[in-house]
């Protein structure tokens, strides 16, 4: 498609101001010290935080997988329901998103506390209390809870495009439910899966509020680390920029790998 230059102009200006210039700035800070002279020190310092980086990737990965496992069957059931029911289900999925993100996470904090509602109930029936807050499990829970809709929605929108008659055609050709799934539904839903993974993994790997509120001090993630460099007492914007750059390159690599996976189906991908 050919877009005339004048139509594209506002977007080009937008991109330059809000994407290109910040990128250049981040790169500039990452390769300079406080005085503005070139240095590789920031970049090489990133390796001191490998543990944090790996923890972030690991927790984000686990949360993404759990989201996929929960969202996939849910999205499928919704996509096969009657149109009226689909609207209701979708509303239920979206409803928690209307509440403020911080509020939702605070709610989990009070629920999971050592003296929180869950533990008190558990004690009442004679088990527990368990240490739930300030664990990796709590962080994953927070991420799954917050990002689940981002998995459900792309899956759902992809699956509504899988026509019933294709499923019927597979059954007609002798495929029992298991085969209908593996031979038709799953391959056709792959673009949605890829989009969902991207939409959950990317924010999850760079989150900082969830890990701080539910993970305590010992479960710091890349997001927390970067925030510390800019706003915290560790104030070091140059290091923060270097870590950001590293995270960005990592995410770009992940996404190009996913894209590779999904070569033929451009549909539903986030570029």
């Amino acid at each position: 498609m050919k877009i005339s230059r004048s139509t594209a102009m506002p977007y080009i200006i937008w991109m330059i101001i809000f994407t290109v210039i910040p990128l250049i700035l981040v790169t500039y800070f990452a390769f300079t010290d406080g005085n503005g002279t070139f240095t590789m020190a920031n970049i090489s310092e990133v390796k001191d935080y490998v543990a944090v980086i790996f923890r972030s990737i690991w927790l984000a990965f686990v949360a993404t997988v759990i989201c996929l496992i929960i969202a996939y069957p849910l999205a499928y059931v919704v996509s096969r329901a009657s149109e009226k029911k689909q609207k209701t289900y979708l509303l239920l999925v979206m409803l928690p998103m209307w509440m403020n993100f911080l509020l939702r996470t605070y709610a989990w904090m009070t629920l999971l506390e050592n003296t929180g509602i869950i533990n008190r109930l558990l004690v009442m029936i004679g088990i527990g209390p368990f240490a739930m807050i300030n664990t990796q499990g709590a962080v994953v829970l927070g991420m799954v809870y917050n990002y689940l809709p981002f998995m459900i929605l792309p899956l759902y929108s992809n699956m509504t495009k899988i026509e019933n008659r294709l499923i019927e055609a597979a059954q007609d050709l002798g495929a029992p439910s298991r085969k209908v799934f593996s031979e038709v539904v799953w391959p056709l839903s792959l673009p949605g899966v890829m989009t969902g993974i991207t939409m959950v993994f990317v924010p999850a790997v760079s989150t900082f509020i969830i890990s701080r509120m539910l993970g305590g001090g010992s479960n710091m993630m890349i997001g927390d680390l970067i925030e510390l460099q800019f706003l915290g007492n560790a104030y070091n914007p140059n290091l923060g920029a270097a870590i950001s750059l590293g995270l960005m390159i990592f995410i770009l690599l992940c996404m190009s790998m996913l894209n590779q996976f999904n070569e033929e189906d451009k549909e539903g991908m986030i570029i």
Binding site: R165, A169, L188
Partner: peptide, 13 residues
């Protein structure tokens, strides 16, 4: 029984 569906219903993938 096999069916030739009204709108073919071929597998696009």
């Amino acid at each position: 029984v096999n069916t030739v569906f009204q709108k073919y219903a071929l597998f696009p993938h």
